[in-house]
Computed example of a mutant assay.
Amino acid sequence: MDDPTVMWSHDRYKECTTKLSQFLKGMGYNKGDVFFMPIAAQQLMNIKDRLPAGVAPFYDGPSLLEYLDDMQSLERKVNAPFMMAVAGKYRDMGTMVEGKIEAGVCRKGMSLVMMPNKEKIEISALYGETEDEIQLAQCGDQVRMRLRGIEEDDISPGFVLCSPKRLVHNVKAFEAQIRILELKSILTAGFNCVLHVHAAIEEVTFAALLHKLQKGTNRKSKLPPTHAKRGDSIIARMEVTGGAGSVCVETFDDAPQLGRFTLRDQGQTIAIGKITKLITDDTA
């Protein structure tokens, strides 16, 4: 906002917020989800302390840190069965994996299951964001674990560590609500792209377009659409065609972190989506 071409101009502020609001609304954000504030970060203006009087008469809201301090904290699923997607692996006096805990808690000596290969493992050492070993970690923590009972070669990013009482689903197909962001042509059944969900990356294909969602109301069309284009929201059935042949996921309602994804093609993000239904052997 302090750029010489802007100089805290209200007109420029309105232009930016109006264009961003339209874009974010198209992405599915509601008006109450978004808050705008003018900032000059290099001058530290409106970061910690509020703007001095007269700098931006059109804004009398909180500073950035003030706003962040007043935000409601996220509800962590501490009491849920343990679940952690493996983001990386390496060898260091044993098999090491790292990732962010999405649900539950874990302790040194705890027994878990590595999906999708259903290997039973044990945590022999647990580390937080420092080099020091810790005894316990919970939902939301970024951790490193030394595992006993599995070799490094048997693990790939996108595998999921979970509680033996509640195994993560491993499916070949699923239904999802998808918003198309960027697409040079049209999208039809048979379109191939790359799925990015938690730490997993798999090739997928649009097996079928099931419904088109009406703008504003999200009402499903009675007939399946023949195609979809940029800006459309659809319900589609996706099938994993990559080397693994399946992927560890959950529905968005059950586990948002394991149920939301992006689709990429030719180095560009073409769509975002959330999984609404898992196609298991029982439902197929």
Rank of each mutant, 00 (worst) to 15 (best):
V6T: 14
V6G: 01
H10F: 09
R12F: 05
Y13M: 05
E15P: 01
T18E: 06
K19E: 13
S21Y: 02
F23Q: 04
L24K: 05
G26W: 09
N30V: 12
N30K: 15
D33N: 13
F35W: 02
M37C: 14
I39F: 05
A40I: 13
A41W: 03
L44D: 13
I47E: 04
R50V: 15
R50N: 12
A53Y: 01
V55T: 15
V55C: 10
A56D: 03
A56S: 14
D60C: 14
S63M: 07
L64V: 15
L74E: 10
L74W: 01
E75C: 11
A80M: 12
A80D: 12
P81N: 06
F82A: 02
Y90K: 13
G94W: 01
T95G: 09
V97Q: 04
G109H: 05
M110A: 14
M114N: 11
E119I: 12
K120C: 09
K120G: 09
E122V: 15
L126P: 00
E129R: 02
T130A: 08
E131W: 00
D132E: 14
E133C: 00
Q135T: 11
Q135L: 12
L136T: 12
A137K: 01
Q138V: 06
C139S: 15
D141R: 00
R144C: 06
R144F: 00
R146I: 11
R148T: 15
E151M: 13
E151K: 11
D154V: 03
I155N: 07
S156Q: 12
P157V: 06
G158T: 11
G158C: 07
P164W: 11
V168W: 05
K172S: 15
A173C: 07
F174C: 11
E175Q: 12
I178V: 15
R179N: 08
L183Q: 08
K184L: 14
K184N: 11
S185T: 14
L187Y: 01
A189C: 11
V194W: 00
H198I: 04
H198L: 05
A199Y: 02
E203Y: 06
E203V: 10
L209N: 05
L209S: 07
T217H: 06
T217F: 10
N218S: 15
R219S: 09
L223C: 07
P224D: 02
P225M: 09
H227I: 10
R230W: 00
D232M: 08
I234K: 03
I235R: 04
M238D: 00
V240Q: 06
T241A: 08
T241S: 11
G245E: 09
G245V: 14
G245P: 11
D254Q: 13
P256I: 04
Q257A: 11
Q257M: 10
R260M: 12
T262C: 15
L263T: 09
D265F: 02
G267R: 03
Q268G: 00
T269E: 09
G273Y: 07
K274S: 06
K274C: 10
I279C: 15
T280V: 13
D282F: 02
